[in-house]
């Protein structure tokens, strides 16, 4: 049975690196894996989505509407924007963190209120916490992506993979310790 995970966020938040670590870890666990990313103009602060699918045999690299088992959102309104991907009964992992788009910054649009509350009311399996704050506490807000990854892999019980080894292979040495801590701190969120 193929499992589908969609990771969404804002350009610059590290969704693509998190997806890469996830994909390599799943491959090393013996699964067929496909990952599809849309990053054409992501560096310019746009909305970014990455699809990861794994199982015995995966065909399409793309997740269909209402068919993701898990939606990991690196930002609150992005969770609401992409919620249509999540299947009924699926799990939402959401970073309780705001990045204001230009329309909000200029006062043209409002950043919606109580996003987490509304998500929780609709999606029973919602896990919300502030990964940015946890990462900042560890010394670098940029590690929020690996905090979220730690929570995701823990929640999915993907323990056949040696995640620290995967991180070691994919993350620059000087950031390794930080990211190992971030990964563990994320996993702790689900204890």
């Amino acid at each position: 049975m193929t499992k589908s995970i969609i990771l969404v966020g804002v350009g610059g938040q590290g969704t693509i690196l998190a997806s890469k670590v996830l994909s390599v870890g799943l491959m090393r666990a013996g699964y067929d894996v496909k990952m599809s990313e849309i990053h054409g103009m992501s560096q310019r602060g746009g909305s970014v989505t990455t699809h990861v699918k794994f199982g015995k045999k995966v065909y399409s690299p793309v997740i269909n509407d209402h068919e993701a088992d898990i939606l990991v959102s690196f930002e609150k309104v992005e969770a609401a924007r992409w919620i249509g991907y999540l299947k009924a009964g699926g799990t939402l992992v959401v970073n309780d963190y705001e990045i204001h788009p230009l329309s909000v910054l200029t006062g043209e649009a409002k950043y919606p209120e109580d996003v987490i509350g509304k998500l929780k009311a609709e999606v029973p399996n919602t896990i919300a916490f502030n990964a940015a704050q946890i990462a900042a506490g560890l010394g670098n807000v940029k590690a929020q992506n690996i905090v979220l990854l730690g929570a995701l892999t823990k929640g999915m019980k993907l323990d056949e993979t040696d995640w620290p080894a995967v991180l070691k292979d994919l993350i620059p040495p000087k950031l390794y310790d930080l990211n190992i801590k971030a990964f563990a701190a994320g996993a702790d969120q689900l204890k």
């Binding site: 992501s42 310019r44 509407d65 992005e78 924007r81 919606p112 609709e122 999606v123």
Partner: peptide, 20 residues
């Protein structure tokens, strides 16, 4: 029929790419 999913009553402000 497509699978069932969720919709949330939140209007997400658009996030187009912008000049950095």
């Amino acid at each position: 029929e497509s699978a069932k999913g969720y919709s949330v009553d939140v209007v997400s402000p658009p996030r187009p790419p912008v000049l950095c």
